[in-house]
Design a protein around this nucleic acid. Structure first.
Length: 269
DNA sequence: AGCTCATGGCGAG
DNA sequence: TCGCCCTGAGCTG
């Protein structure tokens, strides 16, 4: 689930459901219990995302900082809420809505200053209007690191995860092992613009789809793909399956403890 | 019941 | 680079 589009969608959902309303705050699992008691029945004044970080504002009391990590999940909907299970770290509740958070890497009450420090260590986010791709470029064009590793480095660019990384490199025909410093400014600007568009659609649909209209199953006469992550993609988790464009077997390799997927024929630049 | 894997990230060495 | 943290689904037996 959680790449940047998921978190921005969550921020939007929290604003629509709970903004400017007092909310009941609880921690059935217990690890957020002290902070939950402080926040209980206070008004949620803001909800904001930067990359994969979610911030829920409670006026002068500060912010709930949430990072889902690899396993974290949010379940939200209209009341009545389901019975809380003992893995629910955080439950938010008002008359109309509930939000259950399970398995996050981070769920902590932080100050404005601590929040500012988090923004400072994150790179620009294609989903934050006004964020500047040049800040990322300043790191990329001097780096000997592979473009595949740079795209997952949240200090370089915030919000891209393993799916968007694989897919955007495919869409631009870029070999994932190319060094950042071998990228052109034109290529980087195109990647950034493409990520912004793809991730915006991801927020809208709450899933990742990256296949262009002309390559859809209907156009190509192939079977639609069904996968856990729910979207239609070119290479992600398609190891050894034929490339939708050229038929070459999709390759996979470990890179910085994550699985990388690419088409060795289509991605040679 | 126990293993493996997953769209993430941190700190130790 | 490795081990570790958070949880749940989908296998295996």
């Amino acid at each position: 689930m959680p790449e940047g589009h998921t978190i921005h969608r969550l921020a939007q959902d929290h604003r629509e459901r709970l903004l400017d309303r007092p909310v009941l705050v609880a921690s059935p699992q217990g690890r957020f219990a002290d902070s939950a008691a402080l926040l209980n029945d206070q008004v949620m004044t803001d909800a904001e995302a930067h990359g994969k970080h979610l911030f829920l504002g409670f006026g002068p009391l500060g912010w709930i900082h949430i990072h889902l990590g690899l396993f974290g999940k949010v379940d939200l909907g209209d009341t009545p809420a389901p019975p809380p299970t003992d893995t629910v770290r955080l439950r938010l509740l008002d008359a109309d809505s509930y939000v259950d958070l399970r398995g996050p890497t981070t769920c902590a009450l932080i100050t404005d200053a601590e929040k500012a420090a988090i923004h400072d260590r994150l790179g620009p986010d294609p989903l934050r209007t006004g964020d500047d791709p040049d800040r990322a470029w300043q790191r990329i064009y001097r780096s000997r690191t592979t473009v595949a590793a740079l795209l997952l480095d949240q200090k370089v660019i915030a919000g891209v995860g393993n799916v968007y990384r694989a897919e955007v490199l495919f869409r631009h025909g870029i070999d994932p092992y190319r060094a950042g410093r071998d990228l052109t400014r034109r290529e980087w600007d195109a990647i950034w613009a493409d990520l912004a568009g793809l991730m915006r659609e991801g927020v809208r649909n709450n899933r990742i789809d990256t296949v262009r209209q002309e390559h859809t199953p209907e156009e190509m006469g192939r079977e639609p793909r069904v996968d856990d992550h729910g979207g239609e993609v070119y290479v992600y988790r398609r190891a050894a399956m034929p490339c939708h464009i050229c038929g070459t077997g999709i390759r996979t390799a470990g890179l910085a403890a994550r699985n990388l997927f690419w088409c060795p024929t289509c991605q040679q630049r």
